[in-house]
Design a protein around this nucleic acid. Structure first.
Lengths: 226, 226, 226, 226
DNA sequence: GATGAATGAGCGTTCATTCAT
DNA sequence: AATGAATGAACGCTCATTCAT
């Protein structure tokens, strides 16, 4: 898998940026610097001014690439889900048993990313952390419909759709495949967060992959197979 | 139920405010005005300046009650969960069957609030809408540990704990009662939002209470009874 | 006349400002400082930042009084024409002969203001200079219709109307009284400017009040009396 | 006249540009695009960035031709007055009667340009409109003396001088020929503007050429002949 | 000669907050 | 206790301009 990470290159939708950050050195520094800085200070405190200082450039230059800090977050999120889609595709290729495919998908969305892994100058653990902690802020605002029109959530929808298809393969009459998957993805994010900050709202079990266990059980019971 | 709403009065923790907004007319206008304004323009656009204009007061006066707009949201959230706790208590009093008690609890957390209902000069549907769309922003920031220490989330935790207890009553060996409930609460919020804005991420069924159905099935299957 | 200047106080339309600059010390410093600074560096180079430094305050404070630098110029212009209206009223009171009244009006609009005179902490010569050099920028832009709706030009229109009435008194059938006066006012401004910077576009005569002579002759010949 | 327009080519002073816009296709697009864009959004909103997008080029390229947007306006103005000079020369050639020559000159400077006429890829009505609404901004700023030294206003001065000469031919002792002409030119601009936006400041008469009538009367009376 | 990329500087604006009354 | 006035700080954004190719 590691070998693959270094070779794949994710191509994203045009309207996720003003100028493709992958097309220049500065663009890459902007993306990479955003990942580092958002990780460090949180998205709410993150501004183009701070980013420009962090990467040794100027706000004006950053504006050539992204029209706002929200668009940066949207870009990171889209990149993350495209990347997850790749990962999923690799991990289930040639696996015939749909239940095994589903289990691998659940593992992918509930497990933490190993620190130190990189893909396209992105520190995967940090991107994953950002998506975990901040990505809800992309939807939960008044511009969601506009951003949605621009295709910002397509990679996420595709990813969710792909796993839903596996569910339907196992149980074609199951009515809520998308709910099951998004509940799991967003729930996993939340419980990882609760585990750190609000343990009374979850059921932490140290040293075990309890988030995976919890959702795996739910999903398989919901669709009626185990 | 309506009669009850008008008589109950929720007493909140001291450190949710600087000066108790229930102790004065201005305080009540601040809370009520916040509910209206956040509903109207969203929490991100909401500022003390706009609030002061909305209620015909000044920013300085509002600062006597709350030290920041986040604290207002925390207050509304705490109030909401205290209120939900009341509602839950009422609806399960004298109900012996724990499965029925659990079902009522699930109904409570997955169903939309009726428009027009009020409690303590609060428009319940609006408060509920705010908690639905904005409350994640209370946790998902860098101040969460500090805010948590001050007891901001106690009403939420108590509410979750109370329902978890019902689960344990039904199945004392179930390992993840809190996860099950918070997954349901936050998932219900999210799917209500997705239903409006990002339907491909959910499985909308018009005219049916599909959110209730979905989570009820999951919960009962998870704890091993139906 | 001088005694009068120090006692009169001009009350301007509400929507020329956000907060009446005459109502506070800071407000007065804003207006006075604007007059000085626009005189010094020109309206194009004039910004709220520079003004705030000039008067030892902050941009934020200035924004409490005026929503933009254009509104400041509009305010100064409105103040100037209200003031001119006063001056006109005083100088023609009890003068029966309409031709003499008209001559005095022409003198008022074609003559330079004496340096050193003040009214309401305003240096009259400087305000006059600003109106002379910059006031056309108030009309000649895309917001003119909006600004006009807000009544910004009422004092100017009133002033022009008052002199037009004198013309009609002398010759009730004269068709272009407003054109005659505005041509004179704006022409006088322009020729004062040309005299300094583009002499080939005017006919400077040093030591004589040639601007007054030129327009007086034109006006009286136009309305058919001399 | 139309035939003439298409053949004449106006040669302008070297220091009105860095590189002659008539010397290349891009140069012509810059000038033509400026005319369109200034007409559309106004000179104040006009920037090299917007122009570069409008003509499908880059800011850097435009800087090869003009050092600032002011210089573009100066160039357009100079072109316009050179063109007007041509028009005047044509229309009075072989006309012996100076009073008729003067009348034709007055007509030229007070009448609107027909829509649709072009000369040198310039839409004449648009250039005329720009000169009408924006050209005062060329003089009324702090750089006027510098710009004047560079000869920016020579075509205007020449044009004014030529008409002044006609006046002096009619009445050699008239003292203010330049004032009379510039008052008329700038006054005509202003009243055309007032007619659209501030009618109380002029005396609009629909369907008649009142601006011509007004100034013709003034001029002939001023120089003592009718 | 024309362009693409990047930048420095500054503007307008708003916010959270404080102080004096 | 509530308010009016003022402020410090920072943000988002755009512009004019330069440099390397």
């Amino acid at each position: 898998m590691i070998d693959v990470l270094s070779t794949i290159h994710i191509q994203l939708n045009d309207n996720l940026y003003l100028k493709d950050p992958e097309s220049s050195d500065l663009g890459k520094r902007i993306v990479q610097g955003s990942v580092e800085l958002i990780n460090e200070i949180g998205f709410d405190q993150f501004t183009f001014r701070k980013l420009s200082q962090h990467i040794g450039s100027t706000e004006a230059s950053i504006y050539r690439y992204f029209e706002s800090k929200y668009k940066v977050l949207v870009y990171l999120s889209a990149w993350y889900w495209s990347f997850m889609d790749y990962q999923l595709a690799f991990s289930i290729t040639n696996v015939k048993d749909p239940q095994l495919r589903l289990e691998r998908a659940i593992r992918l969305i509930t497990e933490a990313v190993d620190k130190g892994k990189h893909c396209q100058h992105m520190n995967l653990a940090k991107v994953s952390q950002i998506v975990n902690d901040e990505s809800l802020k992309i939807y939960l605002n008044r511009e969601v419909d506009q951003v949605n029109k621009e295709g910002a959530f397509l990679p996420y929808k595709d990813f969710v759709g792909r796993i839903s298809d596996i569910i339907l393969e196992i149980n074609p009459s199951y009515e809520y495949p998308h709910m099951l998957i998004t509940t799991t993805i967003e729930g996993a994010h939340l419980h990882r967060f609760f585990g750190k900050h609000l343990p009374r709202l979850t059921d932490v079990k140290k040293g075990e992959d309890y988030i995976f266990d919890f959702y795996k059980e739910i999903i398989f019971k919901a669709i009626g197979k185990s």
